[in-house]
Each structure stands twice: as C-alpha cells, then as structure tokens.
Amino acid sequence: MTTDAYFEELAGALRAAGVPEEQIGRTAAELRGHLAETGTAPEEEFGPAARFAARLGGLAPAPGEPDGAAEHWTWTADVFNDRRMLAVHGDQGWEVESLDAVGRFVCRRVPGAALAWEYRREVITDRRRARVLEELEPEGWELCGEWLTYGYFKRPKSATAGPAGAPASVPAPPAKWLFLSRRGKVALAVWAALAATAFVALGPPGYAMVLMGVGWAVATAVMARRETAPDGAGTPGRS
C-alpha cells in the first residue's frame, strides 16, 4: 500500500468515526511528518489503517481506565446463524472484543462514536492457522475470538466502505442473547433427544456424557470439513 493510499484509508475511517475534518487534516500532517523522520512505511509504523483509526479516534479505552461510557452486551448464536447475526449486530455498531469460555460473543459499543463492523468466520485448525492469519491480517482483519475450530475476525466497515461504513442505526442493546436458527433448533432437539435416550438406556451418567461428547465432536468435525471442503485448497472460506 502506498503512503497516500494509507492516509486516504485512515482519513476515511476517522471520518466515519465522526472525527472533525480539521482534526483529520492535522493528524495526517503530524503523522506524515513522523514518517519523514523515521523513514518507515506507514503500515509498519502505525499498523493497519483501520485499527489505527479506531485507536486514534479515542474509541479504544485507555489501559486501566474505566470504560464507563461504553455499552456492553453478550450474546450467542448457533453455527448456522452466527455469521448472519454478526453481520446484523456489526451494522449496529457492536464490536466483538472476545469470545468467552462458553462461546458467547462479548461485545462493546461506545454511543456517539460507534463504528460499523464486519465479521468473518474461518476454520483455523493448527495447520491452517498461520496461512489464514497471513492472508487476512494485511486486509485489516483482526482475530477477535476462537471457538473450537473456528476463528472469528473483525474489521471496521469504514476500512473498505469509507464514510458509508458508519452504523446505519444504533438501537438500544437488545435484551435477547440467544439467536438460534431453525436448523440449530432442530439439531439441538435431536441432540437433546439422543442424549436423553442414552441417559435412560445406559443409566450411569458417565455413559451418557461419553455419548454426548462423541456426538458433539463428530458434529464439529463434520462442520469443519464442510466449511473447508468447497475451497479448502488454500483460500479461507467465504464469510
């Protein structure tokens, strides 16, 4: 990326975050001056433009500082529904900060300064991990959480859409936290029925737990294979 292209992307992202035009110009002049002295490339010195813009815009909380103004919301969805719901909630300005131990998306949003986010999910088994990161990071994607074999990546929409990448609407944090698809509900019902049958048939909880664990592992493996199969030769799957 050329220096001009970098600063264009940076300016677009700052604009989308509501930073005044005058401040954007001032910041760009200062940063260009810095590069003139270090002799480094912008990406090397400042990191990906979208991420840098988010930090410059005062959107990232200072380490150790209370984060009072931000809204927080944790939710989850099944694997059939997660990408659709991430797209919906990303458009409303929710940034996934991490996935918690039970696989829920831990989100944050700063009212008045929210960016719209886009997300993608990739299978990142040990073998694929380095390659996926190598391909996605230069495009501004940041790994924001992992669940089983899946890695979830985020990127501010302004990185690609410029000012058009601002959130379309910023509704209040939803009270709902579980978003199941129809397929997800059917799978859950089948799994619950199987587990209940196994429990009744096999008696000791240990057997049932083994059965549930095996079923879960098989389902995960099948899902991961389905995900990588169509274009598994190299490129990360569609998000």
Binding site: T27, L31, T38, E45, F46, R55, A62
Partner: peptide
C-alpha cells in the same frame, strides 16, 4: 515505541 502506540496516547492526553 512505534507511532501506532505513541499517537493514540498523545491524543488521549490532549483530550
């Protein structure tokens, strides 16, 4: 200290 770390700090101090 890279510029990517320093300038957000300067920004916050100024704000």
């Amino acid at each position: 200290i890279k510029g990517g770390t320093l300038y957000p700090v300067l920004n916050r101090l100024e704000e």
